[in-house]
Design a protein around this nucleic acid. Structure first.
Lengths: 234, 234
DNA sequence: CAAAAAAGTGTACTAATTACATTTAAAAAA
DNA sequence: TTTTTTAAATGTAATTAGTACACTTTTTTG
């Protein structure tokens, strides 16, 4: 019997993470980028990435890279797309699978960031990235807009307790357009997915704004019964 | 300088195609499957797949496999997901990228099918598939439902000229639920994407049904101006 | 010429979306 | 203590989109 495998070439496989965060004060989306400390492309900016190791699945690799960089686990992480152009990495043929992560900036230890050469960069002012990483970011952005509309992933970018104003600002940052305040509130509240807390956020306003909390169990329950999250707004 | 690549393992990379077709007469979706003529899993059913060759991108590989099998080019083909579990293929570590293809069954030469051990199989009655291919099919099906709703890909599964009844049957097959005839027609016609032809289809009815044709240029034009295809129906 | 079979058609009702301006609460300043 | 300032909170009317629903037309066949 012939070994059908042996006759075929093998390639390096990598994983790259597009890590989104949201700056509540600045009301803008951010990307966690790495200043490379190794060749090729030393000193240039790139996504957080790495090679898939022996005995490690693609998902495992993405998790490992994300955890190593952030020190966090249980983050929102989802496979996005696999980039397999032959010369996308000039150093060797590397097939890279991009993953899409959402994390709350506030959760991230600034120490760990520094140690890894990681930095939050505004989406509106990104540096050039190595290889095809800018393409990856473009695709991730399109995906973020779509996903945020049809699934309640926005909450991954906010602290557990957030105000309606903060939530609206986040969606305005994602959609890149203003949203009518009353319509937004009417819609999100009518879904019964977020619950008003007893306390208020008092940093940004004298009056203070009520905190809300996303009830994930409720969402799971509703989704099981045919509910579709949809936050398409004017 | 150290070669950072050399220290990492390499893997086989493959491509698998989930090829959907639509049987107009039987009003059901079909999958093009292969009866394997080689080890491992000789004699079992699988998706059309193959290894990514030297100097060939992932997209190229998917195209090649699809073209070889069908003798057709310019088909609807889109990357779906990459499967990277360590032991998904018992013979070796193979990372496989699944692609999603739509073709009109009528376009396919039955000769070529036979030569490749390919067969159209009803979605409602699929055989067991090797490895994780059933998982791939499940994901592709979910994707098909979603994509068909928000993009005009249904037409890829029909001949150039089709009747409104055929189009509705197709959507009923995709959504797996009945659609109101008048509402469906009102909606699809109001988009101004399909154009009534001068002739009728006369096989299935005494009265005959008007042929329509999808105008792709018109869709591109409208989409550029902010139009969103959406065929969500009761 | 009557029956059968499938294609084609319109309207009234309900739900969802949109546009839009004032009041409330609390702190800070006068 | 009163006034000013700042941001949060709130409701309604008009429009648009979605849904439910049944009969007529055309043509072939018996």
């Amino acid at each position: 019997m012939v070994d059908i495998y042996a006759t075929h070439p093998r390639y390096f496989n990598a994983v790259d993470c597009i890590i989104f965060g949201y700056d509540i004060a600045g009301k803008e989306l951010k990307l966690l980028l790495i200043k490379r400390s190794f060749e090729p492309a030393l000193g240039q900016w790139s996504l957080a990435g790495g090679f898939v190791q022996e005995g490690e699945s693609l998902d495992d690799a993405a998790c490992r890279i994300l955890c190593t960089l952030t020190g966090l686990s249980d983050l929102y992480l989802e496979q996005l797309y696999t980039y397999g152009e032959t010369y996308r990495d000039p150093g060797a043929r590397v097939i890279s699978t991009a993953y899409f992560a959402l994390i709350g900036i506030h959760e991230l230890d600034p120490e760990i960031q520094k140690n890894n050469g990681a930095q939050w960069r505004s989406l509106s002012n990104l540096p050039d990235l190595i290889f095809d990483h800018s393409t990856m970011v473009d695709r991730a952005l399109l995906d973020l807009v779509e996903t945020a509309r049809i699934r309640p992933v926005g909450f991954e970018l906010l602290p557990e307790k957030f105000t309606l104003v903060q939530l609206q600002n986040l969606y305005e940052a994602i959609y890149q357009k203003p949203i009518d305040k009353r319509n937004f509130r009417k819609k999100i509240l009518s879904m019964n997915l977020i619950e008003k807390q007893q306390d208020k956020e008092r940093e940004t306003s004298k009056k203070g704004a009520w905190y809300y909390r996303f009830n994930e169990e409720k969402y799971t329950e509703l989704a099981r019964n045919g509910f579709f999250f949809n936050l398409a707004v004017s």
